[in-house]
Amino acid sequence: MADLILRGVSKRYPDATAVDGLDLAIPAGAFVALLGPSGCGKTTTLRMLAGFEDVDAGQIALGDRVLSSPDTHVPPEHRRMGMVFQSYALWPHMSVAQNVGYALKLRGVRAAEYERRVREALESVHLAEYADAAPQALSGGQRQRVALARCLASEARVVLLDEPLANLDRHLRASMEQAFRDFHRRTGATFVYVTHDQAEAMALADRVAVMHRGRLVQWATPEELYQRPRTEWLARFIGNGSLLEVAGQPLGPIDGQPLMDALGCAEGQRGPVLVRPQHVRLDESGVVGEVRDCVFRGERYEVLIRLPDQQQLLAYHGCHVAIGQRVTARISQAWGLERG
């Protein structure tokens, strides 16, 4: 199985540039998420990978084979890619089994081989008993599993998923996330998963490409994105935390004591610092502030503290703290960010 490579890929429309010089090297068999807010270019990127959109600049290649460039375009049906859409994209006049086997028929697979691959695909997503049912008789989660079975039957080398959980109720999402993980392990295919939901991306993907305004902001593991985001914008987008303006701020890791000392310093050029709430502890020494809010989150409380310079610091705490109470917060570590 080959790596999926994007080199300087751009897509322009008359009124905007949707994707601007995107470079990505996706290892064979990886589970990758394209993450970002609406309009960031992630779905356009997926459609260019699938062959539904032309590339205006750059190149998309699967191993040594160029799929897209300004003068090359391999049609979608010849790319050996499967697509799982947000809207399921199942034919209502076909049975579940016929939907799963549709791509096989287009490729000329017939008789016993066709029946075997459709049956095995449905068994793998636990829908064998629904083979003769109409798609509209199934739940949303079941329809999404039919779409997965269609990819499995076609033996796609790359599976593209366009916000596949967006139409499902919250209680179905966890079970479908597990279905995607199982499907990925079973097939060994390369997965490219588009979502605006950071929790989905962090839970599912080996690596995440965060996009903003058509450009790649950071390409990293979920752990690295959470612990070491590159920019101020990304720190706001990923996870909970406090962004503080601190004098003499370095880029990268910052020890808690120098940070607390810097919070009281009014002189010097200020820069953004990210403090995650798990690195803040209410203690007998540290920075003094006033509790502005205290919210119960089940296993802990989220305590919002206003500092003397009016900046706000979020902390986790084991019990309720009264609003208006003066507290002392100790910061153990932080991360210095690029502006923007």
Rank of each mutant, 00 (worst) to 15 (best):
I26D: 10
E223Y: 05
M1S: 11
N240Q: 14
V327F: 07
G82N: 13
G298P: 00
L90Q: 05
A334H: 02
G239E: 07
Q178I: 12
S124A: 14
G248R: 12
P253A: 08
R215W: 01
L263M: 01
H171N: 05
R143W: 12
R306V: 13
A16M: 12
V273C: 15
R185M: 14
L234I: 10
A262Y: 07
R80S: 11
K105H: 06
A147E: 04
L307Q: 03
C294P: 02
A209L: 02
F52R: 15
A153P: 05
L313S: 04
S124N: 10
E53V: 10
T72M: 08
A121C: 05
V291L: 03
I26Q: 14
V192C: 07
G141K: 15
E200W: 09
Q142V: 11
H171S: 06
V158T: 00
R80N: 15
V84D: 12
D132P: 00
S95W: 04
I5C: 09
A247Q: 14
Q278G: 03
R47N: 11
L165Y: 11
Q311D: 12
A131Q: 02
L62H: 04
R65K: 09
A128K: 06
V275C: 02
H320L: 01
N240D: 14
Y13N: 08
L259M: 02
V100R: 00
D3M: 15
G318I: 01
L165W: 09
A149E: 12
G63N: 06
Q333T: 02
L263V: 00
Y130L: 11
A121L: 05
A235P: 06
P164Q: 13
S68I: 09
V303F: 08
A220V: 05
Q178P: 15
A131K: 05
R157V: 15
R12T: 08
M81H: 11
R306W: 13
T190V: 13
Y130M: 13
V19W: 03
E113R: 14
Q198M: 11
G264D: 01
Q198K: 15
R276H: 01
A61F: 02
A147L: 05
G36P: 03
A189V: 12
L216A: 00
E120S: 04
V273L: 07
G214T: 03
L160G: 08
F191M: 09
G36W: 05
V217T: 04
A209H: 04
S95D: 04
V288T: 00
A315D: 01
L160D: 06
Q257P: 07
G214I: 03
R300Q: 06
Y114H: 11
A156Y: 08
R117W: 11
F183N: 05
H317F: 01
L104K: 06
L22G: 13
A134H: 14
